[in-house]
């Protein structure tokens, strides 16, 4: 039977130049439920689908506030995200304590990136099996960073990771031009719509399975769940049908 000899540890290259353990870790991200992040000139938004293991259980947390100015959304192994988020909380607090400064998002992102990369280059270690979206506001304004288990990080305008996230990314790419100037409410709605896109036909966004996190200039990162997002869900998908009708009419007017 075929057996891959090059995937036993994360320090050995395959003859093709691949490191399978790292690639497998990226697969773990794709197993997690979808999370979406968008930034405008004034706000950064995270939105996520929560999953429950069984009907009787609670939902798995997807968005974790780290410091008052930012939070993360996770896709993949939640336990690995806990390790990373605890580290991020410590580092953020240390920055506030020693410098009286909210840690810059680029700084905290590169610190977890360094940690994650080390795990791919030391024998006996394994990469983190989680991808993160880091969103919030620092001295340089709103930011969104994507973090991958390989230690790769990128600053993004909008991003989606997790199961079936390609559909969400397609939505985000289509609406890319609208994000920069979008208001807080519009940005949340875009995030929820992107989330909806990646949902399978038989599922829906409810107040139980959806999480939203928002940070803005002069506004702390806040996590919205349960009845707090009722209004957003109603207006977003009500308007969507209304919008489609309105758009249809609008286009006819334009054409004539």
């Amino acid at each position: 039977m075929f057996r891959n000899n090059y995937d036993n540890d994360s320090v050995t290259f395959s003859p093709q130049g691949r490191i399978f353990q790292v690639e497998y870790a990226s697969e773990a991200v794709k197993q997690g439920s979808v999370v979406v992040g968008i930034v405008s000139k004034t706000h950064a938004v995270l939105a996520a689908i929560k999953r429950n293991a069984e009907e009787l259980s609670s939902y798995q947390k997807k968005i974790i506030p780290i410091d008052s100015h930012y939070g993360i959304a996770l896709a993949g192994l939640a336990s690995d995200a806990r390790v990373l988020s605890n580290f991020m909380k410590q580092q953020s607090l240390a920055s506030r304590l020693t410098y009286d400064r909210a840690i810059p998002l680029s700084e905290i992102t590169s610190r977890i990136a360094d940690r994650a990369q080390t795990n791919t280059q030391q024998y006996g270690k394994r990469p983190y099996g989680v991808g993160l979206l880091i969103a919030g506001v620092d001295a340089k304004g709103p930011h969104l960073f994507e973090f991958q288990p390989s230690g790769v990080t990128q600053e993004m305008v909008a991003c989606g990771i997790g199961a079936r996230s390609q559909m969400a990314r397609t939505y985000l790419e289509r609406n890319l031009d609208e994000f920069e100037g979008a208001s807080r409410e519009e940005l949340v709605k875009h995030a929820l719509r992107a989330l909806k896109e990646s949902l399978s036909q038989d599922k829906e966004l409810t107040i139980d399975n959806t999480s939203v996190g928002v940070a803005g200039v002069g506004e702390n990162f806040k996590l919205y769940e349960g009845s707090d997002i009722q209004n957003w869900l109603e207006t977003t998908f009500e308007n969507r049908e209304g919008d489609a009708a309105a758009e249809g009419e609008g286009m006819e007017v334009d054409d004539s």
């Binding site: 400064r101 700084e107 590169s110 620092d138």
Partner: peptide
């Protein structure tokens, strides 16, 4: 470090 925000007088 990657950050573009230098430490200001208060931070220092």
């Amino acid at each position: 470090s990657t950050t573009e925000t230098p430490l200001n007088a208060k931070n220092l």
